[in-house]
Design a protein around this nucleic acid. Sequence first.
RNA 1: GGCGCGGUGGCAGAGUGGUCAUGCAGCGGACUGCAACUCCGCGUACGCCGGUUCGAUUCCGACCCGCGCCUCCA
Length: 460
Amino acid sequence: MIRIYNTLSQRKEEFSPLQPGKVRMYVCGMTVYDYCHLGHARVLLAFDVITRYLRHRGLDVHYVRNITDIDDKILRRADENGEPFTALTDRMIDAMHEDEQRLGIVPPTEEPRATAYIDDIIRMINTLVSKGFAYAADNGDVYFSVKAFDGYGKLSRKKLDDLIAGARVDVAEAKQSPADFALWKAAKPGEVSWPSPWGDGRPGWHIECSAMSTCCLGDTFDIHGGGPDLLFPHHENEIAQSESATGQPFAKLWMHAGAVRVNQEKMSKSLGNFFTIREILERYPAEVVRFFLVSSHYRSQVDYSEANLEEASRTLTRLYHALRGITPAVDTPATEYDRRFQEAMDDDFNTPEASSVLHAVASDINLHRRESRESDARASAGVLVRLGGILGLLQQEPENFFQAESVGDLSATDIETLIEARNQARKNRDFAEADRIRDDLAGRGIILDDSREGTSWRRG
RNA sequence: GGCGCGGUGGCAGAGUGGUCAUGCAGCGGACUGCAACUCCGCGUACGCCGGUUCGAUUCCGACCCGCGCCUCCA
């Protein structure tokens, strides 16, 4: 039995898909005006692990993650760059796919783009207007009337009166109420636009997701996810739009990832601590980044810092050390560890608990190996690779992990030549020379590991 | 101010009404030419004050502190 925390009910709930065996999940994706940052990585990785695990449990997951490719920020940035907005969005989408691939993110089943759903968006707005949930303002904008939807605030637990009282008063406000939000924005002169019953314009942000999710998954689906800051107003507004338009319940379960901080501060451009995925991948291997994120629960806040990433790297190294020089057995029968792992993951995807199981298996491998129980070691290694794989970890050859080269490094051949020289010196009991070579390599970031089978090395 | 989340050993990070998290770092021992890796063992903990209970880090209440959202933001 899988239990998942539902933001809507504020508790863990037993997960039972609307359609047995099938999971329909929608996650709010990127607005493609810039490179993806660490916060995006968190959401990407959280739902990657969730998707992998649900599939591992035999569920057929239909995973939709949208791309917002029309929006104020996109138009502004394209304007600054002096390029058509589609040139910007195409480039950023390519970059995003590259980042995802490097992080080993399983691609979503569908990746709808807002500009490909303009007709559906207009249709939904039309429905809302005709049902009395939305109105066209004099300026060509169309707004959702928040007071027309009784359930407004049920996700974020906000009271409509507070929102109205707290709202800023805009100049030249075309809204009937300050809490109302735009479904359709009238085009400004020279701006890209699409024709609509209310004049040329473009969709508001929130309506895109309502339209794309219902088009891809139906009026009601199982899981809706996203980043922590989307809870309000974005997700609240999606519920209002979708349930008003369809008359059906929207998503059954709402999942939100935790925030990412950097050195105990909020990540922001003004603080200068804003990291893109590609910047981070220049400093740390993708698997270390994944392991770091998987080491805390997907709902908790994480702090990105050099110390934390270094620790993740050391910890992952231990796991790969256990697998080094072993051919993992395939089709190993399920063990007590598989059971514990599943129990942890069934409980709202408790990856920290699950990774403690990984360490237990690694200890077993080390012990078997030390006591020369080769087939037991191979069997345990099979379990470790299997369980790691569910989290997207431990799938590369240990030697690749340890010896992955970055520019300017000593080549593998050079290193092996030096190791040979050192072993010759050791054979001659010239330990001064042997230690000199080892220290020299250590100074260049190469750590040697001697064992009965010989000397292996890794980049530290 | 409103809504929500959290305060666990040097650090990271799970969890539980009453013997174990786990990892990193540290210490002792084994292994090693010496190290590294590995193995065995060790230590330090549940913000504060009350309450419930035979017993609370775990439940309840107050307080203090931190964080997120309330505006575009993953």
